[in-house]
Design a protein around this nucleic acid. Structure first.
Length: 550
RNA sequence: UGGGGUGUAGCCAAGCGGUAAGGCACCGGACUUUGACUCCGGCAUGCGCAGGUUCGAAUCCUGCCACCCCAGCCA
């Protein structure tokens, strides 16, 4: 696996270490518990926890739970599980709501300093006073209330004397600031009737992100607060809050570009919609770029970490190709996955010169390059299955599988020759008659070259299974770019092979270990669904296929 | 048209005044009982564009152009 690359944030940190500004580097991963984590979060997790590890510091997990209308405890549990699964351990876990009391006190301080005021404008009026991108805003008529009145009003806001939306606490900065975030931003809003998953009904006023985040960071001793680019405009406000509350030392916010992946969406809003509208089976649908989905799909956590290292960290907008993710998965799985044989679209083959009452046990290594992974036993018998795609009545010479009258190697077994196609009344191929060369076990046949090798399973011992093949969820590189993203869904993103046949060793397989179905790809047992007692396998990713045309 | 960002190969990305790393993808070839893996080779006279400074510029300066973000009591 590649070294963590040296990007601009590492440089900033090393500069801060060299200058003596910090002795220890502390970061945090601050998800809002309002949805499941996805690859975009993985980028942030790997970045933040990676820094904690690389610089002998630590990383906190902090739930940014300032908006109870959208959040839920169920998401808290899911997020914790995902972070652990990715392989990280947080130094401490916090909730922004742990700081509600402190946050309130700091707000009182701001009021005392004349830096915050209670505003009676409603949302619509606030918007009207804010001005536009090119025009300055105008002061709220409540901007110059006395400190005493502000203190009283804010206390009453907390006491629940005012209805939702009737008042807010605002920072008193500059309504003419070119940066709109500085035009007296809202610090607190009133929200009655909500049950916060952590604080219950203790509060009816809730602080906003821009106010909460810098203080939470400072309270925890975070040195570098990493976030995505869209918050760059908020940095002056982040600094303003800490400045006016005399925090020293202060955490430094540094922004980086969020991850975009082609043919999928990395937006909690869009993912929530796909789940809510039933376009996918749930947050853990294997087609989703959620960590839960990728995990169920069979992606190893190490592959996701590696992917995050490969894509780097910059401030430039980017659209990373899916191939980048798949490559990281293949690199990991190739080294670790035991090899197995499975036939996804079975075609029965009868070896006519092999005795009906005979079987033999063949030994096949679990990995072509790793003896330490051991071996398993395969049963060879008169009736077998091969894949329909591995046989053709006729084909050109580039096709190196089985052709009528031609030979092919059965992986780890004998060379067979296709002799006759057996059809039913409707002319459908129902079986193939073939003969085997008994002198080809573990050696090449005399005087001729057999180029093709295909997988097979013995009919008598095969394990029936359902195999699910996945394709990209969307059929366009940037879903929703030109129209509603639902129109961009790929109707063929899930293909089920209901009649797949697996080699016998998979009957009692360790369900947690992903394996390679030779010549098909990497697969893992789906432990969420069951189909009539038959195992269900998900294809994580296919093998790289450089075979262009037949 | 206000503010904040970003432009290096098809994609991601190093580079920090000394003559364009690496990965993905792709194209050759070797090996192969997985059309996999592995290995070897190829892939930017060029760094958004135009000027300028310099012995020397992707790196510095000037001016353009393109794209992204911001007007929630969301995060």
């Amino acid at each position: 696996m590649s070294e963590t690359q040296h990007h601009f944030i590492h440089q900033r940190i090393e500069h801060d270490l060299a200058s003596g500004k910090h002795q220890q580097i502390c970061t945090r991963f601050p998800p809002e518990p309002n949805g499941y984590l996805h690859l975009g979060h993985a980028k942030s997790i790997v970045l933040n926890f990676g820094i904690g590890q690389d610089y002998a510091g630590w990383t906190n997990l902090r739930f940014d739970d300032t908006n109870p209308a959208k959040e839920d405890a169920a998401y808290v549990a899911a997020i914790q599980q995902d972070v652990r699964w990715l392989g990280y351990t947080w130094h401490a876990q916090h909730f922004a709501s742990d700081y509600f009391e402190a946050l309130y006190d700091y707000a009182v301080q701001l009021i005392r300093r004349g830096q915050a005021y209670v505003c009676d404008l409603n949302a619509e009026q606030v918007r009207a006073h804010r001005g536009s991108l090119t025009e300055p805003g105008t002061d709220s008529p409540y901007r110059n209330r006395s400190i005493a009145e502000n203190l009283d009003l804010f206390a009453r806001m907390r006491a629940g004397e005012y209805p939702d939306g009737s008042r807010t606490l605002r920072a008193r900065i500059d309504m003419a600031a070119p940066n709109i975030n500085l035009r007296d931003p809202t610090l607190y809003r009133i929200r009655h009737g909500l049950v916060h998953h952590q604080t219950g009904e203790a509060w009816c006023i809730y602080p906003l992100y821009d106010y909460t985040h810098p203080i939470s960071d400072a309270l925890e001793g975070i040195t570098h607060s990493l976030c995505t680019l869209e918050f760059a405009d908020h940095r002056p406000l982040y600094d303003w809050i800490l400045d006016n509350l005399d925090f020293d030392p202060r955490p430094q916010q540094i922004e980086f570009a969020r991850l975009n992946l082609s043919y999928t969406v990395l937006s909690k809003r869009k993912l929530t919609r796909l789940v809510a509208e039933g376009h996918v089976s749930g947050w853990d649908d294997p087609r989703l770029p959620t960590l839960a989905g990728l995990r169920r799909r069979g992606y190893p956590a190490s592959a996701i970490r590696e992917f995050c290292h490969r894509i780097g960290v910059t401030r430039a907008d980017s659209l990373v190709e899916m191939a980048m993710l798949e490559s990281a998965a293949r690199d990991e799985l190739d080294q670790t996955a035991p090899r197995r044989m499975a036939v996804l679209n079975p075609l029965k083959v009868v070896i006519t010169n092999y005795p009906a009452d005979q079987t033999e046990a063949l030994t096949a290594p679990n990995h072509p390059k790793r003896d330490d992974l051991g071996a398993r036993t395969l049963t060879f018998s008169r009736e077998l299955y091969i894949d329909q795609a591995d046989f053709r009545a006729t084909a050109n010479k580039k096709y190196k599988r089985l052709v009528l009258g031609g030979e092919v190697r059965l992986r780890h077994a004998y060379v067979i020759r296709a002799e006759k196609i057996i059809r039913d009344e409707t002319d459908q191929i129902v079986a193939l008659h073939a003969t085997y060369d008994p002198d080809t076990l573990g050696k090449n046949p005399e005087g001729r070259k057999v180029r093709g090798v295909i997988q097979w399973v013995a009919a008598a011992t095969a394990v029936p299974a359902e195999v699910r093949l996945y394709d990209r969820l969307f059929q366009v590189a940037e879903p929703g770019k030109t129209a509603d993203l639902i129109n961009d869904l790929n109707p063929g993103s899930l293909q089920i092979r209901p009649d797949a046949m697996l080699e016998a060793s998979l009957a009692q397989a360790d369900t947690a270990t992903p394996c390679q179905f030779e010549r098909e790809g990497y697969f893992c047992r789906d432990i969420t669904d069951t189909a009539d007692g038959r195992p269900i396998y998900n294809r994580t990713v296919s093998l790289r296929d450089t075979w262009q045309n037949i």
